[in-house]
Computed example of a mutant assay.
Amino acid sequence: MDKHAHFFYALRLPEEVKQVMNDHFKSFKNNLPFGSWVHHEDLHITLAFLGSAPEDILSSSKRLVGEAINGFSSFSLEIEQLGFFGKEDSPRVFWAHTGEKEELKLLRNKVYNACTVAGFKLETRPFRPHITLARRWKGTEPFVMDKASDLWKRIQEGPIKFQAEEVVLYQTHLERSPKYEVISSYRLK
């Protein structure tokens, strides 16, 4: 195993949602100059970022996450709006928001807690469910969230609805595109 590899647990988006977002990226990229756009196959909702991982602790997390979410039911989500992290005029991350769904918070807590029991020291900031779309604003003009939201409304009629059905453990390969490889997968019932 690559000793520089990073791992994370995430809610996998259905392929049809990834394709809709890929179609939207064409309009976004032409109007919103970010430094890098996430490959549509890499779109996900992070539940627990592990970083580098010794094999024994990673193996333990796989077992504990599987036990923790065994019997967890799938649930519906909606991509309903856009947002950003960082400075208002030059965000470092541009993202899509899925709302504060109680089932998503509960699933995240189960995965997060299983990973801490396995021995990982995880991020302690509050969970803000999102799908990263792009990074590093590169525009010559300041970023304007209202313009991004108006663009979203023009290309998307209403929220994108989907069923959350799978948690995956991803390994990151920075030299590839798409860069995330599924290591383990857990279907929700």
Rank of each mutant, 00 (worst) to 15 (best):
K3A: 11
A148F: 03
G99R: 05
Q163M: 14
L133M: 10
D23C: 12
S60Y: 02
Y180W: 04
P14K: 08
V168E: 01
D42C: 04
H97Y: 14
R135E: 00
K101I: 12
F120W: 03
E80V: 10
F94P: 04
I155V: 12
L32P: 07
A118Q: 07
E165R: 14
K26W: 14
N22Y: 12
Y112P: 03
G71C: 11
E102Y: 08
K161Q: 14
L82V: 15
K62A: 00
W37C: 02
V20W: 06
E55H: 13
H6V: 00
G158N: 13
P129S: 11
N30P: 07
S185Q: 11
L122S: 01
K179S: 07
G83D: 06
S185H: 04
D56E: 15
D42I: 05
P33M: 07
C115I: 05
P129I: 04
K153E: 15
K161L: 08
C115E: 01
E166H: 02
K179D: 08
I160D: 03
K29A: 14
I160S: 01
H6I: 03
L82G: 08
L43A: 07
I45W: 03
P33I: 04
R187H: 11
L64Y: 12
K62F: 05
R187N: 12
S61N: 08
L11N: 01
E166T: 12
A114T: 00
A164W: 00
C115F: 01
V17D: 03
K62R: 15
